[in-house]
Structures are given as C-alpha cells and as structure tokens.
Write a protein that binds this DNA or RNA. Structure first.
Length: 823
RNA sequence: GCGGAAGUGGCGGAACUGGUAGACGCGCUGGACUUAGGAUCCAGUGGGGCAACCCGUCCGGGUUCGAGUCCCGGCUUUCGCACCA
C-alpha cells in the first residue's frame, strides 16, 4: 500500500487526506457548518437516511454506503441553495442489542452508549453532513416517552387491542415475533424454527388500513421494487364469500362461509375444508369420526409452524358431515386439513381439485372426486386429469349448467350474481396483511404503558405519567415462561390503578422495535422540545420527508409500519399529511466475494482501516464508483486506487493553478477544455438527482483527463468548478481546495456552478456513416450538416462508397448523429 | 410455485426516447523518469486476421434502413414471498 505520510515528507504540497480531513472536520464542528436553522430555514429540505441499530461491531460498509449515498444527495441539495436537514440517530432498542448484551454478559444499558459513541466517531470520520444537535436514540426516555404516547393514541382511537392469539414464538430468542420477522417459518435473527404459542398480545389494527396503504402506493414517488414488495405483502385478493349450508352432527343447521377468488369454479367444488382451528369444527364432527378427528386436531395443534407451513405433504380428516354446494345442490363432504389457514379469509375453503393445485393434491391423496369445470380452448372436457388446470386465459366454463361456455371472468360475475340473489354469496376482498402484534416478552424495549386492575381492566397510563421508565435490572435474561423478564420484578410492576387507586399490575411486555422506528422521522426536527412529541410548526415546515434513502430489506417492515403510524396520526389530526416520505429510493446491497456481508461468513468490511489508509473522501468516492447506487456492488479493494488517483490529480491541478498567478482572472481558455467543463457540469448536475453517482464520478474523471492532457497548465477557471462538483462526494478535499482558491466561506455555501448551454453543444461532430445498417466510416463534420452534403461527403470516401453498388435505394439521416445509406 | 431485478471485455461497470457497443475505473502489455519503484507520467488494450475486412452485448426466432435497447420463445443468476384459497 502506498504511504501518504512518507510521500508528504518528500513533497510538502502533496495531498495528505488524514491532515485535510482532520482539519475540516474540526472546522465544521467549530463553525457549525452542518447546523441547520430548524426554526428559521426558508427553504427546508429534509434528506433522511435510515437510522442504524448501533451494533457493537461498529458501522460497516453496508451502512456507510447508504449514508454516503444520502449525504451526497443532501449536500447536493444544499449546493442548490436549500437548507438541508440531514439528521442521524440510533435504533438502539431491540433484540439485536439485547442478545448481544446477553452474549457478553453485559447490560445493554451500559453497552449501547459505548456503541453509540463509536458510531458517532465513525460517522463523523466519514464526513457526513450531520446536524448533531438533532440526534436521537430510541432508548432515551425523552424519546420513548413519546413512543408510549403513540401507543396510547392508537389505544384511545380503538386501533390497539388485546387478544389471545396463536403467535410466532422463537424458542431460541424466547420471544414472540411479528409475521414479518418470520422468514420461511424460521426466526429472522437466529434461523431457529418458529413454534406456535397462545399468549395475550397487543395488536394494532393495521389491516383496517390495508386499502389505503395499498392505494396510496400508486401516487408515491418510490422505487418501484419497494412499492411492488408492499403490494405483494398487503396482498389484495378479489373474489367472493360464499355460504355453504351444512347439517351439524346434532342435526342443527350451520352455514360455512368460504372465501374464493374463483367463484366461476363452484360447480367443481366437490368438498369443503376447514382449518383445524375453525370454530365450527366441533359442531360438525360426527360420533363415528370423533376419535379420528380429535387425534388429528391434537397432532396439528402440537405441530410447530415450520412443519405446518413448509411441509409438502397434505394431511387431513373427514368430519363425517356434509354441506350443500349452493350451485349444484349436491351434498359434499366437509374435511379438516392444516393446509387451510385460520388467519386468512374465513378459515374455510371450497375445494376445487380440478382447478387448484393444493386441492388437487389433497383430492388425489384421499380419493375425492375431481370435476372439470373450466376448459382451455381445444381441450377435451371429459379427459382425465393429470394435474389441476389453473389457467384462465381463453378458457371456457364446462359442466356448469347454464354458465357453460362463459369465459372465466364472465362466469365469476354471473355465478356470484346468481348466488347473491339467494343470499348465498357476495363479492369480497381479502388482504394477506395481518394486524401488527407489538408485544414482546423481552426486556430491552419501551414498556407498554398499561396497568391492569382487577376492577377496571386494562387501564392506560395517563399521558402525564409518561414515560414509563424501563427499570434498570441486572436480571433481564428471558426465559421460556412466555412472560417478560420484567414480570420477575414485583417492585416495578406493582403499582396503583390510575382509575380506582387499587393495587394493579403494570403490563410487563415491551413494545416491538418497529414501533420505535415507525415515527422517529417526526421527532428529529423537534429534538429538545419536551412537551410535545413533534412541534406542529416545525413539523409543518420540515415534513413530510423530502427524500428517504434506505435499504430494501425494510421494504415491508419499517416502511409499512411508519406509513401506518403516519396515517393514524393524520386521521387523529396530529399531522396534515398522511404519507411520511414523499420520495423513497432503495439503495443496493454491498456484497463481498459474491455473498452478502455477514459476520458468520467473515466477509464484513469495517470502513475504519480503509479510511485510515485512503482517507474518507477516496473511500466515499470509491463506494459510489463501485456501481449504480440503487444496485450496489461487489466490494473489492483493488480499485480504490483509481478514485484516489483522481483526487490526487485534482489536488495537484488546483495547487498548480493557484500557484500560477499569471493566469488568474480572465485568461483565455482552451475552447476544448471549456466545452468539456460545461458538459461535465451539466452531466454531474443531472446524474446526482438520479442517484447515478458512478457516472457522475466518471464524468469528472473524464474532464480531469482532458484537462491534464492539455498543452498547458490548468487555470483557476478550469479547476474551480470541479471543486464544487466534487464537493458532495469528497467534501473535505473540496473545502481545502476551495479555501486555497481564495474563498473564506464553505464550499457548501458557494452554490452550484452553472453551465452555458451554447458551450455544451459541439460544433464539430463525428457523423456515423452506415451502409445497410453496418458501420462503414465516420465523417468529421459541422454539427448542423444537412443530408445532401453529408451524403456527398460520404460517397466521396472510397472506403464507404465501395460498399454502395449503384445509386442508393434509400437514405436515412439522423441530424448530428448518423447517415445510413441503404443500397 | 408466485413476484421483482438482472445477464455486455480478464474484472467492476457505461450506452437518455432504437442510431458510432465497451465511457470511466481496475487489471494487463510496452515505454519514459529513476539507485529502486508496488510512486508518477506516456502509449496500447473485445476476439480473429499481415491487411482489406470479418465476428462480437446469455441462447433461438421476429420487427426495423438500423436492435444491448422493442416483440415472441427458452436458459441462467439473484433478491423477496411462499399451502394466502
């Protein structure tokens, strides 16, 4: 590796990143360069980055990649004249921190401040334009006081409720997980198979907001991939709810409600299936079947979610009862099977084995009848099945009485209409989105502000009594009792009921970390204000967030929850907007050796050593030059040197220009250099808003190549604008060079250079000449050359005209670009 | 299985609405300056051919004067979701 310190000893004016960066970081602190006038800003711009969980390992390149990408954007907006607010904070509660503390045998309350201090050091060393007066940590009582307040607002408006529910339980983390934290039946954090448990939990009614959360997506300026992920997660399905009359085991009449997206296939519904947890199950078991069914129910109840959700083989049992298919009037058996989920739809389905893969598999296994009711064009309606036919395009209904020959779409409408007349069906919409379980049986989170009283029930802690402080306890290790470690601390949870004064008991669960992060962006401008969570005036000035940049791993978790909380606060009148982020861009992932960075793979890159070797500016530039910001890239340190060389050359060009006093002022400029300069200003200014950072850097490199290959030394006017262009990427060197160019103010207050559109256009161009679409030559001509003249010039070239036999049949001319002679 | 994104030199990647494929960088080759260089500077660098030229953007078709870009079919990689009725 090269050694900038030694190099510096030999040549005093050599670029020494450590010295330059240290100098400017200190000066930014001393001068308050990055501080924003929150109350007085006239042109506010809120450039938000996702706040990190302050891990003990410190900031890794994945974090830094995202932060730098946002910082460049923010600094660019500032150079455009905006008052840019770029705050930073810490998502410091949660299982991450707690598990790590447990591993070390330390208290998270001690560990987190150390980690935060380390993060801050790293972030400052990286040169981010952070206003440190507006930092926050979710673990700060001054912050989580308002997290608890948010919970109380939802409770007050009936959007928080408590229910006993089968929840995802991670036996390793010993806690309940949200559906979003279960990946493929396993715990998101430790990959342990998740089990089912019944616990009393607090839920938020996010499913009530499903339609709005879905519909608003159409109008948000967000990365398409993120919007698609949210749409899929919300999972809207349109169909019908259909009633199947059934006779219970005791001869009573029952109705089984099913949800289907394919009402057109009802003539093929040859049996019904209930989820094992379905409330009608007991009523439908006939005496003859009782033992077998009870045995089955017991077996499925014990089974953990992973076995149930990922098992490929179907299991099930006949109840002994029959229901009536309202379309055919025929009796069909009612089965129980665990492939039907109680959480979705009505917990019961009409099985159409001819046209659903799962039903087909089940019917084959248990010998249930399979009827074809939809037929692709040209297929034989009476042919045997080898698999379910699930297609619909161009298909027609068959074996469906008077609906025969209808298309699938027409059949859907007609059949629901027919059944609706008998009150046996109605159109229905279902969402996959479930209510948000926010209870966590852990220690390291904000206590849920509820007090249970024998007389009054669940009583909210009065807002004036917030925060409910998380007590410092040494004994915070979770156990598998299903209750929080706080439930072992009677001195904490025993408290008077706020309503009646009788002795009550605090809720001992804490809330989900995602609640902490669901509203943090509202707090930043108001940090330091302690009587409201977010000041109405400041909020109106700064929010919603102008640009949010973050990882797509939060496409459905954090981004959906924060949209929900914002909508709720809007509906309550606390906010005058209902979407928190006007513009969201997902950045790519930095991988190493083709794999995602992770501690277990041992391929995590810590920025510190790179910054120590190359400087923050070169490292920032390298991260951005790696590939398109929205796609990420493979980290390989080999090519950092390219960016460093570019900065070295910029440095020496400016130093040379400054030293050469003779050329200051209005010296004549080479027109080639000036043209390239103006083209570069234009390109960089267009690329940054598109987050096309890699091509912006390439453009600056190109310009520097033109400049240094020129006949004479670079002059001020040729280098000063580059210092401004490079400033968002490499802020320290830019400040230093800007100062050396004789400016006393920060380069970030110097504005963005403008370009002369007339200068951007080349007057001489290379016109591409093709014959029959094949490249045959290039003509160096005036930009505004006409077709006839170009053709004449082309035909005069022997190397071109030799491909043209006789006179051209056709000539295609694209002015300024290309001439194609079709012979 | 469903959904998203993507396949371009030795490598990372450029190429806005179809119009000069390979910008920029790494690496590599040669040269200069040097006691030396893993520093710096200069030149070259998709493949084939002495050359004229020919071939080249995952594969196969198609549209077009012209396709990396558009259409149809297939393959591969990758990231989400996954018995959602």
């Amino acid at each position: 590796m090269n050694d900038p310190v030694n190099a510096n000893e030999e040549r005093p004016d050599e670029y020494d990143p450590q010295e330059v960066e240290g100098k400017w970081q200190k000066r930014w602190r001393d001068r308050g360069t990055n501080a924003v006038d929150i109350a007085g800003a006239s042109d506010p711009y809120y450039a938000l980055m996702m706040f990190p969980y302050p891990s003990a390992e410190g900031l890794h390149v994945g974090n830094l990649f995202a932060f730098v990408g946002n910082d460049i954007y923010g600094r660019f907006q500032r150079l455009q004249g905006h008052n840019v607010f770029e705050p930073f904070g810490y998502d410091a509660f949660g299982i991450h921190s707690e598990n790590y503390a447990l591993k070390l045998g330390k208290h998270p309350g001690k560990l987190i401040p150390e980690n935060i201090a380390n993060f801050r050091r790293q972030v400052e060393r990286s040169g981010l334009m952070i206003d440190w007066r507006h930092t926050l940590a979710t673990t700060d009582p001054e912050y989580y006081k308002w997290t608890q307040w948010v919970f109380l607002q939802l409770l007050k408006h009936g959007l928080a409720y408590r229910k006993q529910a089968a929840v995802n339980w991670c036996p390793s983390c010993k806690t309940v997980l949200a559906n979003e934290q279960v990946i493929g039946g396993r715990c998101e954090r430790c990959q342990t198979p998740v089990e089912q448990r019944l616990l009393e939990q607090w839920f938020f009614r996010i499913s009530d907001y499903a339609p709005r959360l879905l519909n608003n997506l159409d109008h948000l300026d967000w990365s398409e991939s993120t919007r698609t992920a949210q749409r899929n997660w919300i999972g809207r399905s349109e169909g019908a709810e259909i009633l199947f009359p059934a006779e219970a085991a005791d001869a009573g009449r029952e109705e089984i409600r099913v949800f289907t997206t394919r009402p057109d296939t009802i003539f093929g519904a040859t049996y019904l299936v209930l989820a094992p947890e379905h409330p009608l199950v007991q009523k439908l078991i006939t005496p003859a079947q009782r033992d077998a069914v009870e045995e089955y129910l017991e077996r499925t109840a014990k089974q953990d979610l992973i076995a149930r959700k990922t098992s490929t083989e179907k299991t099930g049992i006949f109840t002994g009862s029959y229901a009536v298919n309202p379309a055919t009037g025929l009796p069909i058996p009612v089965w129980i099977a665990d492939y039907v989920l109680m959480e979705y739809g009505t917990g019961a389905i009409m099985a159409v084995p001819g046209h659903d893969d799962r039903d087909f598999e089940f019917a084959m296994l248990f010998g249930l009848p399979i009827v074809r009711v939809v037929c692709a064009e040209g297929d034989d309606p009476e042919a045997d099945f080898s698999s379910a036919f699930t297609g619909s395009e161009g298909a027609r209904l068959v074996n469906s009485g008077r609906f025969n020959d209808m298309t699938v779409e027409a059949g859907k409408r007609a059949i629901v209409e027919m059944l609706a007349e008998k009150d046996a069906a109605k159109p229905a919409v279902n969402y996959r989105l479930h209510d948000w379980c926010i209870s966590r049986q852990r220690y390291w989170g904000p206590p849920i502000p509820i007090i249970y009283c024998d007389a009054c029930g669940a009583v909210p802690v009065p807002e004036k009594d917030l925060p409910v402080i998380l007590p410092y306890v040494e004994d915070f290790k979770p156990d598998d009792s299903g209750v929080s470690p706080l439930a072992r601390h009677e001195e904490w949870y025993r408290v008077a009921c706020p309503k009646c004064g009788a002795m009550g008991r605090r809720e001992t669960d804490v809330s989900d970390t995602f609640l902490d992060s669901a509203w943090y962006f509202l707090r930043y401008p108001s940090v330091g204000i302690d009587d409201v969570p977010f000041d109405p005036v400041l909020t109106r000035k700064w929010l919603p967030v102008d640009t949010y940049i973050g990882g797509n791993e939060h496409a459905v978790l954090h981004l959906l929850y924060s949209r929900f909380v914002t909508m709720v606060l809007h509906d309550m009148g606390h906010l005058d907007f209902e979407e928190p982020y006007v513009r969201f861009r997902a950045h790519g992932l930095i991988i190493r050796n083709g794999a995602k960075m992770s501690k277990s793979r041992g391929n995590v890159v810590i920025p510190d050593e790179y910054i120590a070797t190359w400087g923050a500016d070169a490292f920032r530039g390298y991260l951005m030059f790696l590939g398109p910001f929205e796609e990420g890239g493979d980290f390989r340190d080999a090519s950092i040197s390219g960016v460093k060389r570019f900065l070295d050359r910029l440095w020496s060009s400016v130093v040379t220009a400054v030293a050469d006093n003779s050329s200051s002022g209005s010296a004549e400029h080479s027109s080639e250099v000036m043209r390239k300069l103006h083209q570069t200003i234009k390109k960089v200014g267009e690329d940054i808003p598109r987050l096309s950072y890699n091509t912006a850097i390439a453009a600056m490199m190109e310009y520097m190549n033109v400049l240094r290959r020129g006949e004479r030394k670079p002059r001020r006017g040729e280098v000063a604008p580059v210092v401004q262009l490079v400033a968002p990427f490499a802020p320290h060197i830019a400040e230093e060079l800007w100062e050396r160019l004789g400016h006393s103010e920060s380069v970030f207050d110097a504005g963005w250079p403008s370009f002369d559109p007339a200068l951007v256009e080349e007057e001489k161009i290379e016109l591409a000449v093709q014959v029959n679409g094949k490249m045959r030559g290039r003509l160096n001509v005036r930009r505004d050359i006409g077709q006839d003249e170009a053709l004449a010039l082309a035909m005069a070239e022997g190397s071109i005209s030799k491909f043209v036999n006789g006179s051209p049949r056709k000539v295609v001319f694209v002015p300024g670009r290309l001439l194609n002679i079709v012979a």
